[in-house]
Design a protein around this nucleic acid. Structure first.
Lengths: 122, 122
DNA sequence: CCGAATCCGTGACGATACTG
DNA sequence: CAGTATCGTCACGGATTCGG
C-alpha cells in the first residue's frame, strides 16, 4: 500500500532510471554532501566543491531543484545573494550519497593498488 | 594506522575523486547491483541491464576490473564463455549502490511531481 | 562584485560491421 | 558468444563574457 513495487531502474523505459541518472553523478554527489551541512550560497558552494565550474554548478543545482531535492532562495540585495538548501526529500538522499563518497575515500588505497596491478600486467 | 583520514573527494586533486567519478555513474550502479545477485556472463549481464550497448558494457566492466571491483573469468570453450563477479572489494560497494538505485525507485513519484510543478510555473 | 548565459572543444554513448 | 573497431552524434563540461 505504501507504494508501487513496479519501479525498476533496470528497465530501460522506467522513469526511475532518469532519476538514477541524475543522482548517480559525481557532481550531484558532492553538491548534496556539502549541502548536507546546511544552507549555502552559490559562491561558498563553488568554493566547497573544488574545481567545479560555474556553469556546471548552476546546471546541477537547476536539475536538483527541478527534481525537488534542492530549494533556491533569491535575495534581491546588492551584491545579489542566492542560497541553496536541501529539501526534505533531498535530505533523504544525503545519507546514500554520503555513504558513496565515504566509500571512495575509505577504499581509494585498495583501488589504487588494483590499478597499479592491472596496469603492470600484460 | 588503520588508514589515512586525509582523503577528501571535495579536494580536486585528491585521488579519491577519481574513484567517486567511476562509482557515481548510472551504468556502474546498475552493473554492480545486478552482479550483486551472483556471477553472470557477458550476454546475461547485457540482458539484465536493459538498453546498455555492448561497447559501454565492455568499457564499464573493464574499468571496474581495473579498480579491483570486478573479477573476469575466461573459459576457453566453443562458443567462448566469459563470466563476471564482484570481488570482495566490489561487494562492499554493492550496498551503497543498491541503496542509491532503491532511492531512485522509491522516490520517483515525488520526483515526477516536483518536475511537473517546476515545469508548470514560469 | 556575484550569479548566470554563451561559445565551443572533448568525451560519452549508440549503431554497425567485423574478428577470434 | 564475446568482444574489438570505426564512425557519427550529442550532451557534458570548461573558459569566457554578460548582467544586475
Amino acid at each position: 500500500m505504501p507504494q508501487q513495487p513496479d519501479w525498476n531502474v533496470l528497465v530501460s523505459t522506467c522513469p526511475s532510471r532518469t532519476s538514477l541518472a541524475r543522482i548517480a553523478n559525481k557532481w550531484t554527489a558532492m553538491v548534496v554532501v556539502v549541502l548536507g551541512r546546511g544552507t549555502l550560497r552559490f559562491g561558498d558552494l563553488r568554493t566547497a566543491v573544488e574545481g567545479i565550474s560555474g556553469k556546471v554548478l548552476t546546471e546541477t543545482l537547476r536539475d536538483l531543484e527541478r527534481d525537488g531535492l534542492v530549494a533556491r532562495h533569491v535575495y534581491a540585495e546588492m551584491p545579489p545573494r542566492v542560497e541553496y538548501e536541501l529539501t526534505t526529500l533531498g535530505r533523504t538522499l544525503h545519507t546514500p550519497l554520503l555513504a558513496l563518497s565515504r566509500w571512495a575515500e575509505e577504499h581509494i588505497a585498495e583501488v589504487l593498488e588494483a590499478r597499479d596491478a592491472y596496469d603492470a600486467r600484460d
